[in-house]
Design a protein around this nucleic acid. Structure first.
Length: 540
RNA sequence: GCGGCAGUAGUUCAGUGGCAGAACGCCUGACUGUGGCUCAGGAUGUCGUGGGUUCGAUCCCCACCCGCCGCCCCA
């Protein structure tokens, strides 16, 4: 008997009525995005690992230890194989390996391909690729069998392909024992592709921007997405291994105004609007500029230098960070360290003139629009691609996970992954955290939406008539729950009160007369309503 | 990944080295076409999983799984 299967660690099922809240959030977000002229983009849930390594940054926690990555399996380079079979036979080397039982080469996996090759008398032929079924291949196989066997290792082998005649069974071949293996030095394989479940969505959007030449339109691209992301972290409240983000990106060639501080301000103003419309109160917008890549390098050096004389008085974490990632020292929450951190240089002093002017324009526009914010020169976000404006909207009541959303500008991201110059700015909202915040503020009872009516047939003989009535009402746009004639009326009332605002009683009398009995739960008033007027009555 | 706390009915939680408990919820009846209140009755569990100690383990010990809190980091 197997264990009961459960949702895996860090994942969960979303059930009604909570899913209604998710849908409402997404509907409001789509509505706001549409008014700001954003269009939806849907990118794949997994991408080439290299995309994240190059955009998010090799050294970040996300890439170095939190990604769900796997090898997509080897692929044969058929051109190289063909060339080798034809002209490069001498370069091949053979080793012997048992194919039954543990392989002495841990990296080697056996693959069996059944083909239509038939070579009389041959016991086993093991080659490291799938040969084309041609006279040359058959000839080569025969020669391979006869070739000199020399000792060697198969460390470079990724997989072996055992070619067997279609008439043979796998087991019969495997039980022959040792087979000869050609050493290929990897040249016949396109090394297996590493894929990764997306840990964030900006990289995918920028990849799509480049791949589809969206910059060629010369227009600013304004794209939003809603979807699951994956990070292998220790789960906590508000932190899951599969979590949903609602995000948007503004990206385009500089000529389209993609570098303008107005874009930054517009994004932030849109977020303030979105949070307000969602009914989130008490949020704080924290704002900073991390400058250009050059600014940040300068600042890192300044920070490192400033830390030298004081770091020994700081907490153990900070001593480590001072070496690995000085910017992270600014995030330290140890009270005793705060006075020391206050003496450290701030990044604003390392910004060049252009970055300073950009940031000043952003804050000026926010002031004009009346969007409140606080400057936080300690806000240094963890992803490598951020430049200039960075921001976070935080909210109390989320514990250690107080960031409701985060984002920033990424002027060099497109070029970093091989695209054209395409500055951009974007953000990602943690939808799970949004739900938690709203759930905490929600009145449990008022949150429960109920159907317009519950139809209670009296007796199973009236079930069919009840379905007809429900169909009529539903076609008129009403939200109807249908009971069952086998219930006693008492039970129908009980069920109806939980799911609907009114109960419609359908007995023999009602069916004959066409006058239905309707009771409104909120008032307790019971009335007779002609069938023709029922829809209008229930809609009230 | 590290540290701490927890896991018992659908839910929230008591509890004990020797029969498995409460409240709420659920079902049935009092009440054959009128719920919410009341009353009476009922069902519900491999006490997270696997080992160990013991005559006997839900309880003690170990491991694992999962959750929560903090760290790391992030949404």
């Amino acid at each position: 008997m197997s264990q009961t299967l459960k949702a895996v660690r860090g994942t969960r099922d979303l059930l009604p009525p909570e899913t209604a809240l998710w849908n409402r959030i997404e509907a409001i977000a789509r509505d706001v995005f549409a008014r700001y002229n954003f269009g939806e983009i849907r990118t794949p849930a997994f991408e080439d690992t290299a995309l994240f390594a190059r955009s998010v940054g090799e050294e970040t926690d996300i890439v170095s230890k939190e990604m769900y990555s796997w090898s997509d399996g080897d692929r044969f380079d058929s051109a190289a194989i063909e060339k080798c079979w034809k002209d490069d036979f001498s370069q091949r080397q053979q080793v012997r390996t048992p194919v039954f039982g543990p392989s002495p080469y841990p990296n080697v996996q056996l693959r069996v391909i059944r083909g239509s090759i038939s070579i009389p008398g041959i016991i086993v032929e093991l080659v490291c690729f799938r040969p084309t079924i041609s006279a040359e291949a058959i000839d080569a196989l025969a020669r391979a069998k006869d070739a000199e066997v020399s000792s060697g290792t198969a460390e470079n082998l990724i997989s072996l392909t055992l070619v067997v005649p279609s008439s043979a069974t796998e087991n019969a071949w495997i039980h022959r024992g040792a087979v000869s293996v050609e050493k290929l030095n990897g040249q016949f394989f396109i090394s297996s592709q590493s894929l990764t479940l997306r840990p964030e969505n900006t990289a995918g959007v920028v990849r799509a921007y480049i791949e589809h030449g969206l910059g060629e339109s010369g227009q600013l691209q304004k794209l939003y997405y809603i979807g699951p992301q994956f990070r292998r972290e220790r789960p906590q409240k508000g932190r899951y291994r599969q979590f949903s983000q609602i995000g948007a990106e503004v990206i385009g060639p500089p000529s389209a105004g993609s570098e303008s501080p107005l874009r930054d301000a517009e994004i932030l103003e849109m977020l303030a609007t979105l949070l307000d419309e969602l009914g989130i109160t008490g949020w704080t917008l924290e704002l900073n500029s991390v400058g250009s890549a050059a600014d940040r390098t300068r600042y890192n050096e300044a920070l490192r230098a400033a830390l030298v004389p004081v770091v020994s008085q700081m907490c153990a974490d900070c001593q480590r960070r001072a070496v690995t990632n000085p910017l992270r020292v600014l995030d330290c929450k140890v009270p005793a360290d705060q006075p020391i951190i206050d003496t450290l240089p701030v990044i604003a002093d390392s910004l060049d003139e252009a970055s300073q002017a950009h940031f000043a324009a952003v804050t000026a526009a926010l002031d004009a629009a009346g969007v409140p914010y606080v400057l936080n020169h300690r806000l240094v976000r963890g992803l490598d691609y951020y430049t200039r404006t960075t921001f976070e909207f935080t909210h109390g009541g989320l514990g250690a996970q107080n960031a409701l959303l985060g984002g920033g500008r990424y002027d060099g991201l497109s070029e970093a992954i091989g695209g054209p110059k395409a500055p951009g700015i974007g953000f990602a909202i943690g939808e799970d955290r949004l739900v938690l915040t709203l759930l905490a503020a929600l009145d449990q009872n008022s949150a429960q939406l109920k159907a317009d009516g519950y139809i209670a047939p009296l007796g199973e003989a009236l079930n069919a008539a009840a379905l007809v009535l429900a169909r009529e009402l539903r076609h008129q746009g009403l939200w109807i729950e249908l009971g069952d004639g086998s219930f006693r009326l008492k039970k129908s009332f009980d069920a109806a009160d939980k799911t609907a605002r009114r109960i419609v009683i359908l007995g023999e009398d009602e069916l004959q007369s066409g006058i239905l009995t309707v009771k409104t739960f909120a008032t307790g008033i019971q009335t007779k309503v002609p069938r023709a007027e029922l829809a209008a009555f229930l809609a009230e």
